[in-house]
């Protein structure tokens, strides 16, 4: 009987679970956040550390109408350049806070404001204290820019799961998102989405990985599969001189509702700023 390595088994089981979840009729998916193609690991930024990150994506092959693919507003996704500037600070050893400024340049238009986000992220227990490393992520996202996103205020929650198998790292971020308080969609239910990654650490300077992003729409009223967005991104990541970390990839849309091809380029730099709170010994 053929025996597969544990990382392969774990990942195959995860994919099977995700596939089953997507085809169940009463289950739903959420939209993809096109301003942030990033999978969150267990580990948070260390206390007193500050990180500045530039998250960039371009849609070379998308859709020419708004409201489809990665477009959630009236601007079409085709040739859209999106960038988010993220500033993160390590509040404690296990909790970090981050603020985002989203900007976008639609095809033929200038770079413009496209929304803001604030989030907290935390890790639970110590790394490898549990069989699976657990964390959490809570985000508030607001827009006054319906041309980019017609939901003015959203809350998002993600449990974060991570498991290492030797040089393999597997990260799973199920995403639960809900419009809140204001706007015509404020009473809409929760949407489900996901971000996931499998990484193989070869060299600190360059290593390969595969990332997955997608959404199924409202949990109570799943979008048809051909209207859902699902992407797979082969990526490379690593550390450049002077401590700059990068993650670059090409995203391939897997459904008719996805953009066909996306590219992403994330660059981050972290430095020790000093602890705001005194650590407890």
């Amino acid at each position: 009987m053929t025996s597969f390595p544990r990382p392969v088994k774990f990942f195959a089981a995860s994919l099977l679970g995700a596939a089953l979840f997507l085809i169940l009729p009463s289950v739903a998916k959420a939209q993809v956040d096109p301003f942030e193609f990033e999978v969150y690991p267990y580990q948070t930024l260390g206390m007193g550390m500050i990180e500045i990150e530039s998250l960039n994506s371009v849609v070379p092959n998308g859709h020419s109408a708004g409201g489809i693919g990665t477009s959630s507003g009236s601007f079409a996704s085709q040739a859209m350049y999106r960038t988010a500037i993220e500033v993160t600070y390590g509040l404690t050893e296990k909790i970090e806070a981050a603020a985002y400024l989203n900007l976008a340049r639609p095809n033929g238009a200038s770079l413009q404001y496209a929304g803001s986000k604030f989030r907290l992220r935390g890790s639970l227990f110590e790394q490898d204290e549990l069989p699976v490393n657990l964390g959490w992520y809570a985000e508030l996202e607001w827009h006054r820019t319906p041309e980019f996103d017609d939901v003015p205020l959203e809350f998002e929650f993600r449990p974060l799961l991570e498991k290492d198998y030797g040089s393999f790292e597997i990260d799973l971020n199920p995403i639960f998102e809900k419009p809140i308080f204001i706007g015509p969609d404020k009473n809409k239910g929760v949407e489900f989405g996901y971000a996931a990654g499998v990484y193989y650490r070869i060299l600190r300077t360059i290593s390969p990985g595969l990332e997955f992003y997608g959404g199924a729409g409202p949990i109570n009223d799943t979008d048809p599969l051909n209207q859902q967005q699902h992407y797979v991104f082969p990526v490379i990541f690593g550390v450049l001189p002077r401590g700059f970390e990068y993650n670059v990839g090409v995203g391939l849309g897997l459904t008719g509702g996805s953009d066909r091809v996306l590219t992403k380029f994330n660059l981050e730099c972290e430095r020790y700023l000093g602890a705001l709170f005194k650590p407890h010994s």
């Binding site: 206390m47 007193g48 390590g90 790394q127 204290e129 030797g166 790292e169 650490r201 020790y272 650590p279």
Partner: peptide, 23 residues
């Protein structure tokens, strides 16, 4: 990098790092 660990330790402080079974 090999052990996938990255932890800040403040001056005068100590941390406990859990490690998996290593080859």
């Amino acid at each position: 990098f090999e052990l996938h660990r990255e932890r800040v330790v403040q001056p005068g402080e100590a941390i406990t790092v859990y490690m998996p079974a290593l080859n």
